[in-house]
Simulated scan of single mutants.
Amino acid sequence: MGESGVLVEWDWWTVDFGDEHAGAVGVLVGGGEPGPVYFDVGSGSDVPSTRHWSAYDGRYRRPRAEVLRAVCACGWRGAAEYPLDWATVGDRPLYEADVDLTGPLADWTAHLSVVREAAVPLPEPLTALLVEIAERLNVTAAGAPLAALRAAAMLERIAAQVGREAASALCDDGLSAETVATGLGTSYSKALVMLLTAQDR
């Protein structure tokens, strides 16, 4: 999730695809994506930085964003560009300004729709069961957090076991990492690791 030492603050996230397709508002300066913004916190070797759109406000010698667009953790970049109206923003920091982010959000949502359409559909009964489990876990977490944590740990173990068996079956079927990545809505490298791990069993 970004360069070493760079805090990447994603604006949007879904349960369907998690960190693989987390979305954010990206900025363009001079037609290109600027590097991270570093914060001067005094002496020391660890200098915090970020790529969050609101940090590119031109203050304290930071780059000043000219255009906003949608970006995704998978590397996708939205084609539509949304110029920033600095006359309206004025001298305020961007995080205090009322910047309209509906365009980038809509573009990222459309990108997710394409990913979702290409992914293998879940059987309806399984989808309903997953929704019910999530709802029950949330209720349990509010009233009995330790029990909810235990249940979550059990689900992780179940998911890991089923995942290994499913990946092994895909290896036996000779499915390529590209096909698996598309079917899962994940990256090629993650799909390849799943298949290689299954082959090593």
Rank of each mutant, 00 (worst) to 15 (best):
L175M: 09
L170F: 05
A148Q: 11
Y82D: 00
A65Y: 07
L170D: 07
A198Q: 10
F39Y: 15
L184V: 00
A128M: 06
V131Q: 13
R69P: 00
G30W: 00
V29M: 02
C72V: 04
R150K: 11
D57A: 13
G44Q: 03
G58S: 10
S187N: 02
C72F: 05
W10F: 12
A134Q: 13
V193S: 05
A151M: 14
I158A: 15
L155C: 08
P145N: 12
A55I: 09
R64K: 15
I158E: 15
A144S: 13
D200I: 02
V193C: 03
L175N: 00
T182A: 14
G42Y: 01
M154Q: 09
L105H: 15
L184P: 01
V115L: 02
G78T: 01
A177C: 02
D200Q: 12
G18E: 14
I133Y: 08
R92V: 11
E178Q: 05
S4Y: 10
P34S: 09
G75S: 05
P93F: 05
Q161K: 12
A152M: 14
S45N: 10
L195K: 00
L94A: 15
D16S: 11
G75L: 04
E9L: 12
S45P: 05
G30T: 00
I158F: 12
P121W: 03
S54W: 14
L175A: 05
I158D: 13
E178K: 04
L122R: 12
A148D: 11
H111E: 10
A73M: 03
A97Y: 05
A70Q: 01
G2Q: 13
L94N: 14
A22R: 06
Y82S: 00
V89G: 06
W53M: 10
P121M: 04
G163T: 07
G44P: 03
V193G: 02
W86A: 10
V180Q: 01
D19G: 07
E3R: 09
G5C: 11
T182D: 08
Y82T: 00
V131W: 09
S49E: 12
C171Y: 01
P63W: 07
A198G: 06
A198R: 11
S168M: 03
G35E: 12
A65T: 11
G5T: 13
R164V: 04
S187F: 01
R59K: 15
M154V: 12
G2R: 12
V131H: 13
W10I: 06
A160M: 09
S113V: 05
R92C: 08
R150T: 13
S45T: 14
D200E: 13
A152T: 15
W53L: 14
L112S: 05
A166E: 12
A167T: 04
P34I: 06
A80Q: 00
L149C: 08
C171A: 12
